[in-house]
Amino acid sequence: MKKRLLVTALLLSACSQLPTERSAKVETLVIPSQVEQPAEPEEVVIENSDTTEAVATDFEHIFVDADMSFTGTLPCADCPGISYHVNLYRDGRFEARQEYLDRNQVNLVKGIWLLEKRSLHLVNQQQPLPGFHFLTNNTLAMLDLSGKPISHNQKYQLSREAEFKKLDTRQAMLGLYKLSDNQASFTSCRSGDVLTVANTQHHLPVMRQYQQDERFRGQAVVATLIGRRGQDDQATTLFIDKFEQFWPGAICPDQQQPGKMQGIVWRAEKLTNRYVPQQLNVRVIFDQNERLYGFAGCNSFNGQYKQRANQLTVQPLVSTRKFCADSSELEQQFTQSLQSADRAEVNGDKLQLFKNNQLILQFKPAVN
């Protein structure tokens, strides 16, 4: 009986204790928790609008992927301003119209454009043009002398046109006109280019006037007019928009070595201390036969003069009698000053007339 109780106790003891060897072999299986991925940012879509399209790229570059027109008037040191029309073509070309206000001077310039990030350079061999900087896709700011954009002053900025605009290529011209067998040519005094004159309605009166004047007889005569060159295959053709007048006895001015007083079409630049608006086309020529004639802004005039060394005497002028509200007052002052001059000097490219040693009129050779 005691033997059976002992065996039972031993069995109960074995069931209540875990063996140390087995516990050492138990491996805990660790299941890694799922790693949370950061949420992807939602894509922000900006609708097209005038505002978003005008914002420049964040990469500091501008891409000219369409033909663009920029216009505006920039300040000028000695004139009311310079009107600009710049066309940028996506193939790398540019065309520009540069018009000096109150000077009747228009420069038509062609070349290639270069972009350095946002800085725009207009490269040509005709006329120096300022550099610009794209403030936005719609605004060009002129670069200062150090190459930095003038962004704080809108007077130095050009604005993009909503639609591409063709360039106005009309300009004042002075050159040698010659008619032969009803075909006319025009040689520009400024560039030397020889152009064929198109037989349009504006050209026919010019042809008749030339044919009726016996002094011309097939000779080249200096003429002034408003005209434009053709495009593409008509680049050597001149289209006359407005004819002004012939200048018998005149020659093309030498831009490098200004000549004497005679034979040059002189454009009035200053009347005493007042600049003469160039769009009035106040001009005069002193011919070799001691006669003078010209245009005073509203009326044509002619007369006689005598010159001995620098001494000058102008006889009373004969003039047409039209009235022009925007020029008659200045015209009267001009003709009075011209008739009162007692001395004439050609200094550099300027013709200066004096009275009692006081400068009263200043001219420069007309090249258009």
Score class of each variant (00 low, 15 high):
Ser146Asn: 15
Phe132Ala: 00
Asn137Tyr: 15
Pro149Gly: 01
Gln157Ala: 12
Phe134Asp: 03
Gly147His: 05
Leu140Ile: 05
His133Met: 05
Ser146Arg: 11
Gln127Ile: 07
Tyr156Asp: 08
Asp144Lys: 13
Pro128Val: 06
Met142Leu: 13
Leu145Pro: 03
Leu145Ser: 12
His133Thr: 05
Thr139Asn: 04
Ala141Asp: 05
Phe132Asp: 00
Thr139Lys: 05
Ser146Ile: 09
Asp144Ile: 07
Leu129Trp: 00
Gln157Asp: 04
Lys148Pro: 11
Leu129Glu: 01
Leu135Asp: 02
Ala141Gly: 06
Pro149Met: 01
Leu135Glu: 12
Asp144Gln: 11
Pro149Cys: 02
Gly131Ile: 00
Leu158Cys: 04
Gln154Asp: 07
Tyr156Gln: 15
Phe134Gln: 01
Thr136Trp: 10
Lys155Thr: 07
Pro128Trp: 05
Leu145Cys: 15
Tyr156Cys: 10
His133Ala: 03
Pro130Trp: 01
Gln126Glu: 13
Phe134Glu: 04
Asn153Ser: 09
Leu129His: 01
Asn137Phe: 08
Lys148Gly: 12
Thr139Gln: 09
Leu135Arg: 05
Pro130Leu: 02
Asn153Phe: 04
Tyr156Asn: 10
Pro149Asp: 06
Leu129Ile: 01
Thr139Arg: 05
Ala141Asn: 10
Ala141Gln: 06
Leu145Phe: 11
Phe132Glu: 00
Ser151Met: 11
Ser146His: 11
Thr136Cys: 06
